[in-house]
Nucleic acid binder design. Sequence first.
DNA 1: AGCGCACATGAGCTTTCGCTCATATTCTAT
DNA 2: ATAGAATATGAGCGAAAGCTCATGTGCGCT
Lengths: 217, 217
Amino acid sequence: MRYSHSAQGKTRPPQALDPRKQPTQSRATETVNAVLEAAARILEKHGFEGYTTNAIAERAGVSIGSLYQYFPGKDAVTVALIERELTLLSADVTEADSIADYRDAMHHLIKAAVTHQMRRPKLARLLDFEQSRLPIAPRIRHVTDAIHRTLLRTFSRPGAPYIRNMQEAAFDLIAIAKGIVDAAGERGETDAHRLEERVRRAVYGYLGISSPSRRGL
Amino acid sequence: MRYSHSAQGKTRPPQALDPRKQPTQSRATETVNAVLEAAARILEKHGFEGYTTNAIAERAGVSIGSLYQYFPGKDAVTVALIERELTLLSADVTEADSIADYRDAMHHLIKAAVTHQMRRPKLARLLDFEQSRLPIAPRIRHVTDAIHRTLLRTFSRPGAPYIRNMQEAAFDLIAIAKGIVDAAGERGETDAHRLEERVRRAVYGYLGISSPSRRGL
DNA sequence: AGCGCACATGAGCTTTCGCTCATATTCTAT
DNA sequence: ATAGAATATGAGCGAAAGCTCATGTGCGCT
């Protein structure tokens, strides 16, 4: 009976989990944001090792009681953080929908993926891992689905190569980008452009299209 | 703090000046193996959630005290398990050194990587994560270095394409394979051949060589 | 001023988990 | 058979972590 899911067992009367409910730039929102950023920073600095609710609250400058006023449990903090980060990525990714040329759209997608994973590399990696451990939260599902749909739409463009299994390809492309960037991040690489170029080679190879322009490797 | 090698720190008598002890491995080895396999099974079934020393000992059919007789701490169990799994991979990978043709060697490497990651997908994924969290154990370093060297040797074969940065390429290839296979494993895919084919496309694209045995994609 | 509501606080409860150590058991040598 | 070394056992200790709740504090309203 450890990890509490997003929903709650006990009768906790008031609002709890929803960070964006009131139109006011309220103290509640401030606290929620402070907690999320504190959680992010702790994950980046100490990993799961130091990722405790007490540490998060202290770093956020709020009491532990306040943290539990806005989040039903530790996992809810993590889920909210995942949602926050994925929303940033999603906003970037969906821009591809308004790019006419297929190649330009693909380029944009790869850049978005690499940029996201490089922005806060350790955080992205750790959250990714937690996401696989946690029960699938609808709020997260919603965001990842939007990303996925943009990929599928891009694959269906005029000018796009034939792709046997688009669903599969969408997952694989994300996996390739994450794989290369995460591993590089762990080794301390920081040059996003180089990484982008390498991811592009792998992705274009995967899709069976020749690398555009490009130096001969 | 804890971590360290798989065996004990005390002076263990080399056992067996008495030749009658042949058919059964020593009890120490039995216990160590039981513990490692128990640890593996718990990780596969419950993830880090249920990965406690008491649970490992119980599942291995030994007492918690015995576990600590052979391992200086919990992390040492994990390190030994990582070493055990990586050694299997390494044995497979280094076979590539005795394959004459460059393409055949690459094919073998990719197959080995995919097979390893697919054999016990969840275990491989979790151990991979732990490896990044733990201080670098020399025994593990040794095994991964051997794998890495085989990759570099393969890249240097006659017939191999020009590769600008072989170190980087070696890391990237492993990352691509892990990325694709891990993500697929999480979605429940089990067809190793299909995965191999996809990894090959990405890898060959990355290396800038056209995919051999052409299925039109 | 007085009242009541909304939220903040943090000491501390409860449980879990890594690990120890006093004791028991098994093995080996004589 | 007996001593003594080697090894196994598991109750339980100390620390850590998630979470609660009795109490405190600020604020709007009358």
